[in-house]
């Protein structure tokens, strides 16, 4: 349903143009949950912004259901790394934001259909455990809560594609795990095709059905690995299973290869072992 064809991005700069990523080609089928994994600066977020229509590609194209993407649209919902709730709206108003927009209005819809859209927003609030905060403004919410609202807001319109740009990057480890579990449940329930950008290997393996690995800048796809676990398998215990750890090791190996400083680091380590730094004489410490 989504296809990237020879997609490429170059940022013009005064000294020398920065080649962010590409060419990248990728086909995504209906209902897939794909992680884009790669070292920071590899262009995976830029690729996501291009798919969202918020950035222009330098070359190549993005097609959704055969239609070329030319700008942002409600059929591609997005959850951002930064908190992007509208601070002047309550949680409920935030989730209903898209329902008031002219582009999403269906003038042929019956009153019942319109009501059911509002009911869907409320249902998502409930599903994401936000009822108690429905009338709060975002400034009263924790980071994890804010991202839950952002997810609900993006899903209200039943987008064809959900784009997530390191959505849990700013959260603490525990909240992060909670939200990963929640994403698995949501995907099982909604079956929204999802592209999930992350630099966390475990996160990528745990939530997605397929992991696409980017090389360092300029990012290219160096691996496209199916994750064999069923959604019922995806419990916190999975992270300790040998099969999971084996995949993790494989991906870590791929990414380590992409570290620019690896050879230099090895050399330094060898030199340190060969010529240890002399300790200051013990008599100096009083």
């Amino acid at each position: 349903m989504l296809s990237l064809h020879q997609l490429e991005k170059t940022f013009p700069a005064r000294a020398a143009a920065v080649h962010a990523f590409g060419p990248v080609s990728l086909d995504v089928a209906e209902g897939e949950f794909i992680s884009l994994l790669g070292p920071s600066g590899c262009g995976k977020s830029t690729a996501l912004y291009i798919i969202a229509g918020l950035e222009h590609a330098s070359r190549g194209e993005v097609r959704i259901d055969g239609q070329a993407v030319t700008g942002p649209g409600p059929e591609r919902g997005m959850v951002f790394q930064n908190y992007t709730l509208f601070p002047w709206l309550t949680v409920r108003e935030n989730t209903r934001f898209s329902l008031q927009l002219a582009r999403n209005a269906d003038y042929t819809a019956s009153p019942a259909a319109i009501l059911s859209r509002h009911a869907r927003a409320d249902h998502l609030i409930e599903l994401l455990g936000l009822e108690a905060f429905a009338h709060h403004h975002p400034r009263a919410l924790s980071g994890g809560m804010k991202q839950r609202v952002a997810i609900a807001r993006a899903l209200v319109n039943r987008p064809r594609l959900l784009l997530m740009d390191e959505p849990f990057g700013a959260l603490d480890a525990q909240t992060r795990e909670e939200l990963q579990d929640l994403m698995i449940l949501l995907h099982r329930y909604e079956r929204t095709t999802t592209l999930f950008v992350t630099h966390d290997i475990e996160e990528a393996l745990f939530v997605s059905s397929r992991v696409v690995v980017f090389s360092k800048r300029p990012g290219r796809i160096i691996a496209d690995i199916p994750v064999p676990f069923s959604s019922a398998d995806r419990t916190p215990a999975l992270k300790l299973e040998p099969a999971f750890i084996e995949l993790k090791r494989e991906l870590a190996g791929l990414l380590r290869h992409e570290r620019a400083d690896d050879a230099r680091r090895q050399e330094l380590l060898h030199r340190l072992v060969a010529h240890p730094t002399p300790r200051p004489p013990a008599s100096l410490s009083l």
Binding site: A52, P72, G77, F80, T84, F86, S98, Q100, A102, A150
Partner: peptide, 20 residues
Amino acid sequence: DLVHAAQTLGASRGEILSLV
């Protein structure tokens, strides 16, 4: 980011001006 969020939810130019 708020403008981007509104755009991905389907806001038009006028709606971004007034609602965001």
